[in-house]
């Protein structure tokens, strides 16, 4: 059985600034990182591999340099890495992206059964959390989002039991395989690659599939297949703060003022 894990290379958003004139991201000189949620997805896939001996395939849609992200998954222990890269995939919104990823998973399923697909809950650059569910819908898989614990994967009964982390509560749910999970950080602690694995992965083969492999209608993917457009990106103006109290001479008074403010804004519960 295959476990497919979807990863994405994202700009390190802590270092991204927005060009105030053009309203676009200044990507120049900004390093790329693996989408942090995806590292937990990879770890979960590797735990299935360790426990049940499944083969782990990491896939990513992106430009050729996104290969680095897949190599990292290989260094952590993924068996195979496939980069979906083609100019016609470019400019895609979440709908078009999920179509390409779903097609790649279907293609993999021709070789071996795909039992579980794992994605991060969302990416830190788009923050939509739509691609995972989109893939599940297109593949007609059960979808369990926001997973923070996997209780059981029963391969013979073909069922999975997980806990979902929702606002203020947890939900224990069960679904039949094949299934798609989107995962949160609390799920696990990603493993750190050993030096041997890093060196191994540096020379490992990352397969590149373009649309000639997937054979999708170019009008349904990429920019052309994307109904959503970004009209403007901007940093919201922050209201100017005010100085309250006199921390230098009356620290206790200032602390009291702070506490009062926080209670007033409902940031502190009494």
């Amino acid at each position: 059985m295959l476990v497919v894990v979807c990863v994405k290379q994202v700009p390190d958003t802590t270092q991204v600034q927005i060009d105030p004139v053009t309203n676009t991201l200044i990507r120049e000189g900004v390093p790329f990182i693996v989408n942090p949620y995806d590292t937990h997805a990879v770890e979960q896939a590797l735990r299935f591999k360790d426990r049940y001996g499944c083969r782990v395939v990491a896939i990513s849609m992106g430009p050729p340099n996104a290969e680095a992200t897949l190599r990292k998954a290989l260094a952590q222990g993924a068996d195979r890495a496939v980069l979906l890269s083609d100019r016609v995939f470019g400019g895609a919104d979440t709908l078009a992206t999920s179509k390409v990823l779903a097609a790649a998973i279907e293609r993999l399923a021709q070789e071996d059964e795909v039992g579980v697909v794992i994605c991060g809950k969302q990416t830190i650059d788009g923050d939509t959390a739509q691609v995972g569910p989109g893939i599940a819908t297109r593949l007609d898989f059960a979808q369990l989002t926001l997973v923070d614990r996997v209780d059981e994967l029963d391969l013979s009964a073909r069922r999975i039991k997980v806990s979902r982390k929702l606002e203020g509560r947890h939900e224990h749910v069960e679904a039949p395989l094949p299934v798609l999970l989107t995962v949160v950080r609390e799920l696990n602690r990603p493993r750190y690659p050993t030096v041997a694995m890093r060196l191994e992965s540096a020379d490992a083969q990352v397969e590149v599939w373009d649309n000639s492999v997937l054979g999708l209608d170019v009008n349904t993917i990429g920019l052309k297949g994307s109904p959503t457009w970004v009209s403007r990106i901007f940093s919201p103006e922050r209201a100017k703060g005010e100085m309250l109290g006199d921390g230098a001479h009356d620290p206790e008074g200032a602390a009291q003022l702070l506490i009062d403010k926080m209670i007033e804004k409902d940031l502190l519960a009494l």
């Binding site: 390190d12 802590t14 270092q15 390093p31 990182i33 602690r189 990603p190 493993r191 750190y192 690659p193 050993t194 030096v195 041997a196």
Partner: peptide, 22 residues
């Protein structure tokens, strides 16, 4: 422990990632 076993106190994972990435 770090290079061969990948075993270290968990608070170091953040440090290692931060050092490598930033």
């Amino acid at each position: 422990l770090v290079e061969t076993e990948s075993k270290f106190p968990e608070e170091l994972l953040n440090l290692f990632e931060n050092m490598e990435q930033r």
